[in-house]
Design a protein around this nucleic acid. Structure first.
Length: 479
DNA sequence: TCCAAGTCAATATG
DNA sequence: CATATTGACTTGGA
């Protein structure tokens, strides 16, 4: 039950124009009246999305997405970030109001947007919304209004609670004495949320290097050895794989936009958290551009792919160096996989670290080994033919409204219950829909880091290739 | 069934 | 407080 925030009538219109741009004459046939509906549920408590309207209710945006030209996701997020920070607008508000996503999702999206061509229809949606929002002259204002309203509501609530005893939502029923602060009777039913200890992550990463796609059997073993639920291990692999992929995309994008000549600077610092524990090690080259001043942010910190990490004191551990050469080693022997992960991380000093969780350490295994795939076909950075093309920049100045509709049933404007701002929105001619710039994306990535990651990921890719062996499909993996 | 892509939502961090 | 991270869940494909 997606609740599509924002009105769409306007967007639809612009959208169409947009679409039209590239190819005149098209669609005609179906069409359908964009019926929108949903409202900006003010988020707030349960928006159970009544969704009485069975059928399809929230369309339009999706149609828009379907027909949208290629967008520069990186550029969009960059601009959005600028606008938000410049106006002191938080991503929570923006996300809930404009994108219909939670804060965490927005953060992720803004920090690591995937390139347009790698996004699914669903994944493009937020970007289309962002673009639409950027094109809306009143975007900031609208959000500010929302913010004000929210604050007001908050104050109000607070007030009443102070004097009264929080009459809110009696609905919850049962247990839970609201914020009384006694996180006491911690719901046992509430699932504690698993938090993997660093050692466990290390072990999993190591396992990943050997086998990005562990068999059920292997998964079981890992789960047992680490004393984790099987599903946790499975989930971890899914998440890890996908996040690694994402990292790659990011670099791809960044590489594409080399040259910082960029007009609108905004150095958007790359995220990059310090990776505690393990040290950088990185034997690979560092990379592009020196960060502007001072604080050296470890630009890279690729935790992913480079899981090797600590090899303390001496003793070599089979970590795979994924760099340069592809690690190939043990021959593969189909099944038989046995692992052993030494999860002990002996850290300097006497260590004695006790994991908070009393997870029993697994028995020491013996040597690991595992199957590996053949030597991989080296990674040639192909890249060349830049097909890129075109970019139709579309700026539409556009004028008008051709429309017959006009009134229609646009309810737009998120009116929250009380306060209605009403008026303001009216015509709105959002014209320049998607602008598009972006020159070719030829990236000449000669980046060591990138290479490293790519290599690390070959297993992954190969696996998928095998799977897709039977098909032809225009897939282009980039090795 | 497995996987990938998107998200959510609880935690971590700043 | 706002943002960032991350295990788990949801969708949709095959």
């Amino acid at each position: 039950a997606p609740e599509s925030p924002m009105s769409s009538s306007e967007s639809v219109k612009s959208l169409t124009e947009l679409v039209q741009q590239p190819c005149p004459a098209i669609e005609t046939s179906k069409d359908g009246k964009p019926q929108e509906s949903s409202e900006p549920p003010v988020s707030e408590s349960l928006s159970t999305t009544p969704l009485p309207l069975s059928g399809h209710s929230a369309l339009s945006i999706q149609e828009l997405v379907a027909v949208s030209p290629e967008l520069d996701t990186y550029g969009i997020t960059k601009r959005v970030k600028e606008v938000l920070t410049d106006n002191n607008l938080g991503q929570r508000l923006f996300g809930e109001t404009i994108l219909g996503l939670t804060q965490g999702s927005v953060s992720d999206l803004l920090a690591r947007p995937k390139p347009w061509h790698k996004l699914s229809l669903k994944g493009r949606e937020p970007f289309v919304r962002m673009q639409l929002w950027l094109n809306d002259p009143n975007n900031v204002e609208k959000l500010m209004d929302m913010k004000r309203m929210e604050k007001k509501a908050y104050m109000k609530r607070r007030h009443s609670s102070v004097s009264d005893s929080q009459p809110c939502e009696p609905s919850s029923v049962g247990i839970d004495y609201s914020q009384g602060a006694s996180p006491q009777p911690q719901h046992q039913l509430k699932k504690p949320r698993v938090v993997l200890a660093p050692e466990e992550k290390e072990a999993l990463k190591r396992a990943y290097q050997q086998k990005p796609y562990p068999s059920p059997k292997t998964i079981e073993e890992l789960a047992t050895q680490l004393n984790l639920k099987t599903s946790t291990v499975i989930n971890w692999f899914h998440n890890y794989r996908s996040r690694i992929r994402r990292e790659l995309f990011i670099e791809e994008i960044q590489a594409g936009s080399q040259s910082q000549a960029g007009s609108s600077d905004s150095p958007s610092a790359r995220s990059s958290r310090a990776v505690h524990s393990s040290e950088g090690d990185s034997c690979d080259g560092v990379d592009t551009e020196g960060p502007p001043e001072g604080k050296q942010s470890g630009l890279e910190a690729d935790e992913y792919s480079n899981a090797t990490t600590k090899s303390q004191g001496g003793q070599a551990e089979s970590a795979f160096e994924v760099g340069e050469e592809v690690p190939q080693d043990a021959r593969s022997s189909e099944k038989t996989e046995s692992f052993h992960l030494e999860m002990e991380s002996l850290e300097d000093t006497d260590d004695e670290g006790r994991l908070k969780t009393p997870r029993q350490s697994s028995p020491p295994g013996s040597q690991s080994l595992g199957e590996t795939l053949e030597t991989m076909p080296n990674s040639a950075t192909e890249e060349d033919a830049s097909t890129s093309a075109a970019s139709t920049s579309v700026l539409t100045g556009e004028s008008s409204f051709k429309s017959k509709e006009s009134s229609e049933k646009m309810l737009s404007v998120p009116s929250t219950s009380s306060t209605l701002a009403a008026g303001s929105q009216k015509a709105n001619s959002i014209q320049s829909l998607f602008s598009f710039s972006e020159a070719a994306r030829s990236k000449n990535t000669r980046d060591n880091t990138l290479r490293k990651k790519k290599a690390a990921n070959l297993n992954n890719i190969i696996h998928r290739l095998e799977k897709a062996a039977s098909r032809e499909e225009p897939v282009e993996w980039e090795f």
